[in-house]
Amino acid sequence: MTVATPYVEQRRRTNLNAWAAIVLFMPPALLLFTVFVFLPMAEASWYSFFNWNGYGRLERFIGLKNYGYVFEDPVFFRALINNGLIIVVSMLVQLPLAMGVSLLVAERTRDAVWFRLIFFLPYVLADIAAGLIWRFMFDGDYGLAAAITGLFGLQPVYLLASPDWAYSAILIVVVWKYFGFYMMLFVAGLQGVDKSLLESAEIDGASPSQKFFKVTLPLLGPMVRLAIFFSVVGSLQLFDIVAAITAGGPFNTTHTMVSFLYYFGITRMRVGYGSAIGVVLFIISVAFAFGYKRLVMRDD
């Protein structure tokens, strides 16, 4: 007993200190989190059970009907597919492109820095401005598309008016706009790769492609996994470019989840319905974020 007392006392003191720290430091963060993260989420979930146009009180409780409407809506599934397409195109085109370009410009020379700047520029542009510029370029009468078809004497092409092709136009812009960001990520990763490893591989007689696939790429693993994470999150958030280029048209074939939420929830003053879409989007995002962190990024 007498031996154990100081130990217990010490335990108690550290416990007290820890509690003091918690009491002191927790409330600001907790308050901010509650007010700006938890409450909006809780409120949106609450709204999603009502048929509400934003006016007056929440009176018409309709249970899960809004969710039923969401899952009945073909536009919702089209938006979901479109989000998926962004991710697929990002992995198959955008990230390899960014990787290739980053290998070319990773050197710390002046020319490389200039090119990095040029490739990074689209990312700096405001999304809406970039969207409007591209909207004009795709114009079949006056835009770049018109110049190209005119040059070859072809019939004018109206990419944005075609339900089959309009979304490809958006994918082009997405790849163009954001590949610079991933390039920068990879450049940063490449600059952290130990040169001596590459040198020793070279001495051992590795070909350039072997050097890339056996040394550089594995070392860039964390960056690649991070880039994929960003591309999925970016896809789930994509709105501005869609709004500026097609506003979801023609025939609602070019919506993403967020533009679907905006054009079908907010502009139609169906706050309950929009909230239901928001909750679904939230669940998808959370499931992905936690799942990906746990399964793929667990060692990073």
Binding site: D139, G140, D141, Y158, L160, A161, S162, A166, G249
Partner: peptide, 10 residues
């Protein structure tokens, strides 16, 4: 087809 070309995006 009375509308201008590409009317769906105009």
């Amino acid at each position: 087809e009375p509308f201008q070309n590409g009317y769906l995006a105009t």
